[in-house]
Design a protein around this nucleic acid. Structure first.
Lengths: 115, 115
DNA sequence: TATAATACCTAAGAATCCAATGTATATTTG
DNA sequence: CAAATATACATTGGATTCTTAGGTATTATA
């Protein structure tokens, strides 16, 4: 999914959709390249999205009805802005909650010392 | 990886090795079936390992030199006990740390409200 | 003017996991 | 005591997800 310098890559699969949805929830609308830059910025370079993962995932989310797009021209260059649909909003809440719940359950296994 | 009733499955990939290594660190030695039962017990049924994921992963960890095995017969039935090798011990610390670091970075993206 | 940054995209292959299936022994329950 | 369930190992085909690598084109910077 990402170039992820600090972590073994296999640990991180399955969170790309969650990240995209959450950023769009936070920022209203964003285009692909902007998403990669924002993630890099927020995580101080520790998470870097690859385009080979990002663009297919955006297209998937759109075809699933979670995102809508509008094109804009900046000079001659196209930008595709993505925003959440109503069902995209719902799905964002679900995905974030699922991630938090999963982390909670993982901690039961990874830190049972004090249990 | 697992039958995971509460979570979307895609969120969870890449943590199976970490779970196995950590349980072996905690318990000294365990056999495959025991691992599935222990995970089910600790997570109160929220994480259930499938055998199709577990056994190939155990074999992979063994061939990578992180685990060793000893067979024991219980009546006529075989059990294969797995334990950590020295490099398995090191890898366990790495994997758990990587997971905790990844969670920290994900929270930067998922909860930037108060930032 | 060359290089880097911006901005989009696809395709081949690797890695990981699930579902299904298979084998066999031991225990519990009706 | 027979049937169902639990114990215990294992493999295979297919799905999903990501990486690597490549492609096109415009704009800004050195």
């Amino acid at each position: 999914m990402y170039i992820c310098p600090m972590y073994s890559k296999e640990l991180i699969k399955g969170t790309l959709k969650t990240i995209i949805l959450r950023l769009l929830e936070e920022n209203g609308r964003m285009y692909g390249y902007e998403i990669t830059q924002r993630v890099k910025e927020i995580t101080e370079g520790q998470l870097v999205l690859t385009e080979g993962a990002l663009y297919p995932t955006l297209h998937k989310l759109e075809s699933d009805g979670l995102l809508t797009t509008e094109k804009e021209f900046i000079g001659k260059r196209v930008r595709k802005y993505y925003s959440l649909t109503p069902s995209g909003n719902t799905e964002t809440l679900n995905k974030v909650n699922e991630f938090q719940e999963f982390v909670r359950v993982m901690q039961l296994i990874l830190k049972p010392k004090t249990a």
